[in-house]
Design a protein around this nucleic acid. Sequence first.
DNA 1: GCGGAATTGTCACGAAGGTTACAATCGGGC
DNA 2: GCCCGATTGTAACCTTCGTGACAATTCCGC
Lengths: 239, 239
Amino acid sequence: MAEHDSQWRLAILKGNAWFKDLPAEALEEFARISRFRRYQNGEFIAARGVPPEGLLVVIRGAIRSATLAADGHEVVFSLIQPGYVWGLVAAIDGLGSVHDTQAHRRTDVLLVPRSAFLEILDASPELYGHFARLLCTRLRKAYTAVDEFALVPLRQRLARQLCTLAATAPGGLPEGDGATLRLTQSEIAVMLSAARPSVNRELKRLQEEGLVELGYRGVTIRQFAQLRDICANQGLLAS
Amino acid sequence: MAEHDSQWRLAILKGNAWFKDLPAEALEEFARISRFRRYQNGEFIAARGVPPEGLLVVIRGAIRSATLAADGHEVVFSLIQPGYVWGLVAAIDGLGSVHDTQAHRRTDVLLVPRSAFLEILDASPELYGHFARLLCTRLRKAYTAVDEFALVPLRQRLARQLCTLAATAPGGLPEGDGATLRLTQSEIAVMLSAARPSVNRELKRLQEEGLVELGYRGVTIRQFAQLRDICANQGLLAS
DNA sequence: GCGGAATTGTCACGAAGGTTACAATCGGGC
DNA sequence: GCCCGATTGTAACCTTCGTGACAATTCCGC
C-alpha cells in the first residue's frame, strides 16, 4: 500500500509548504518516522489542553482548529488545508493542544510523532532555525487576527472572507467576477465567528450594492474589485 | 558609567525571564554585544512594517506594543514590563515590526542588534531551541488573546489580568492576598484594550463584592482565590 | 493649607452585533 | 405535483461596551 511507503511519504513532505525547504537528509528522516493516518468527517483529533501525539501534515481534507466555550460558542481559528501543518507549537513545547481540533471532512494526514520529531531536531539543531521562522509566521498571523477581531467590523471581515474564498476556490476562477461560492450562510458565519442573522444582514447589504448575488446555497461575486476595496477601507493602517 | 559596563549588562540579562536560562557563555556574548538605550515617555520605538534594529530587553519603564487603526483607534497588544523582551519575532525573521511600538514612560532597555543576535544563534544553533520555545509561549498567548476577545467578557479578562499581575509582581507577594498593584485604571484599561470607564465599572463591582480594594494609583487584591475563580467561571472550557 | 494636575467616579447615550423567534423560500425525494 | 427538511429573510429585543462629558477626589509641590 502506497500509504505505508516511505518514498510516498517523502513525496508528500516535498510538496508541503513547511517541509520542502529542509535539507534532503532531514526530509528523509521525517518521511521514515511519519505515519499515514485517516480521520473521518467530524472525528476529534485533539482536545484543548491535551498534548497531541505529534505534528500532522495535512494531505487531503481539512482540519478545523477552534476553541469551544463552556456555553457552546465556538471561535474557529483556522481551517488547515492540504499542504499545511497542524500542531507545531505543541510538538515543540510539549504542552497541551492550543485548540479543540477535529477533521472537517474525511481527512488524510501524515503523523510525525512528537518524540521522533524532537529527536531529529536535537540531532540537527540547525533545523530549529527553520521551525522558529515558521513559528514567527504563525505568530504574525495570530497577531493580525487579534487586531482584526478588535478593530474590523463584520462587513469588512465578511468582504475579506469572500475575497479569500473566491481567490483560493478549488475551481480556480477567471478573475473572481462571476465566481459562485457554494456555501451556506451558516458556514460563512462560522468562519467569521459571527451570528448567522448578522452575516445575512451584511450579505443583503452587499447584494443591494450590487457587489454580490445571493442564491440558495451560494454567493456569487459580481464586483470582485469593489469587494476588495471594502477590505482595505477603514481597516488597519497601511503597512 | 555602569550602563556601558558589560558586567552590568550581564547582570541584567541574568535577571531576565527570557535569558537567564541560557548557557553562561551565550549570556556573556549577549552582554558583550548589547547596548544600553534610553527612550523618553511616548517616544516611538518602531512602526508597524518597519524592521526594528533588534531585540529590546526592558530594564525600566515599559514598552507599549499596539496596532493603530486608520480611525485612530488602538488595540494594545502588550505592555512589556521590565524583565521581558520585545521584538523577538522580527529579530528572528527579519521582517517588519508587528506592531506600532512606543515607550510607555521613560524607559531603559538593552538593545541586542539583530545581526549580532543572529550570529550568536547561528554559531550555537542549540540556542534556537530555547527561543523556539519562547515563541511557542508567545503563540499560546496570542491564541488565547483571540479566544478571549471573542468569548470572554470584560469582567473576567480584568480578573485574569489582576491575577497575572499579582502573581508576577516585582515585589513578590506573600500569596497574592493583600498585594497592591501600583497601576492607574487607565493603564489597566490599556492592557485590556478596553475603555477606562468600563474598567472602572468592573473594578467597582469587584470592590463591592469585597474581592479588591481601590486606591489612588493602585488596586489591592483582597481575595485572590475568588478572583481566580472568576477567571475560570463561564470562560473557556477547563483545560 | 492651597492650587493644579492627575486620577477616579459616574452618567447618559449610542453602536455593534448577538439572541430568539418565526415566516418565507428552496429543492430533493416520493 | 407535493411534502418536508434545510436554508434564507426579517424583525424585536437585549447585552456589552465604547464615547464624551463632567464632577469628585487625591496627591504633590509650593
